[in-house]
Computed example of a mutant assay.
Amino acid sequence: MAEFTSHEQADIIFMYGRADGNASLARRLYQERYPNRRVPNVRVFSNTYRRLSESGIHHAEHAVNPGRHNVNVEEQILAAFEADPTTSIRVVARDLNLSIWKVWSTMHNEKKYPFHGTGVQGLEETDPARRIRFCRFLLNADIDDAWFLKSILWTDESKFSREGITNFHNLHEWADKDSNPNWKKQISFQRQFLINVWAGVIGRTLVGSHILPDNLNGQNYLEFMINDLPMLLYDAEVPILDTDRPITFQQDGCPAHLAVSVREHLNRCFPGNWIGRDGPIPWPARSPDLTPLDFSVWIRVKELVYTTEITTREELLQRIEAAFEIMKQEMQMKVTTTEVRNRCKKCIRNDEGHFEHQQ
């Protein structure tokens, strides 16, 4: 950006103030007032105001700008980020008594960019070996039987609340640079409600949704398995039901799933052919990244449910039902085949078992 004299910058700030912070209007006012001058780019108005607000220093040729083109200062900035790559521009600026603009521009010129981390499930000491063992079993079974992955009924429960899951890093509203909408999202409501939703997926067929009791235990989960699950599979028109091929039932290690009566029922309905904790095919604990419900279905459903704020339990139920209808149309076979294979391979390649940060 071309430099402007102190007098020109004072006029730029004056016009920016007259325009009440509207940079486009400020540029027009400046052009009308000073027709014989070069007209600054619209960004100059807001940038000049920001620099002056943050550091009290302008960019005129004769201005004294401590830290500008100062190799020692730039080395201090880079050293601060090298010592702690997770620190922030604001913290470094405060510690080195510099403007935020100076720190940001130094990092930008050095082609340094902030990368956000990925939250992963905490693992116990014995978890990685069990996860890798399970992944190898799936991959080998898939090689031996091309229909194996397509015949797994993956199941899971997820709770939906009034607040939903809020990731403020991804919350934003696009607007003109000089027109901050200052929008807000309400959280921490005094009047709360919670809905426990069960769903399953087999091949490209989404089964459910079905509302379970808020406090799931072995008894009411068994009642669901006996009374509701067969009808849900029938209503979903699961293609495999019209063949002689058995379904492989999968569930995670939720306490309700571990009830003796539940496991006895699974042994009767899916003899030697169900995946779960203490099942004939052991499910590795703390492995939501391996089930399509967690890495695909719930993410998309909640994205649809929480597009806008929810005020009543009835509205939340309607949103969940509508989201599942959309998801049933969007569901693709590759989620339960290609994506499962890829995740199993990545889990094996990473000795720790974590791989979602590389997705």
Rank of each mutant, 00 (worst) to 15 (best):
A2R: 11
T5M: 04
H7P: 05
I13T: 01
F14W: 09
A19P: 06
D20R: 15
Q31R: 11
R37E: 12
R38Q: 14
V39I: 10
R43L: 13
E54Y: 02
I57G: 07
H59D: 15
N65A: 12
G67S: 03
N70L: 08
V71S: 15
V73P: 01
E74A: 12
E75I: 11
A80Q: 01
V91W: 13
V92I: 08
R94V: 08
T106H: 06
K111C: 09
F115W: 12
T118A: 11
Q121G: 08
E124S: 14
E125Y: 11
D127L: 00
C135M: 00
R136T: 05
R136P: 00
L138A: 02
D142W: 01
D145F: 06
W154S: 01
N167G: 05
D176I: 09
K177F: 10
N180E: 10
N180T: 07
Q186C: 15
L216I: 10
M225V: 00
M225G: 04
N227L: 08
D228Q: 09
L229Q: 03
Y234R: 15
E237F: 04
P239T: 01
L241R: 04
D242T: 14
C254W: 12
A256W: 06
S261I: 11
V262M: 07
V262N: 01
H265W: 03
A285R: 00
T291P: 06
D294M: 02
V297K: 05
W298T: 05
I299T: 15
L304G: 14
T307K: 15
E314C: 09
A322V: 03
A323T: 08
K328Y: 07
K328A: 07
M331K: 12
V335G: 00
E339S: 07
C344R: 02
C347S: 00
G353Y: 03
Q358F: 12
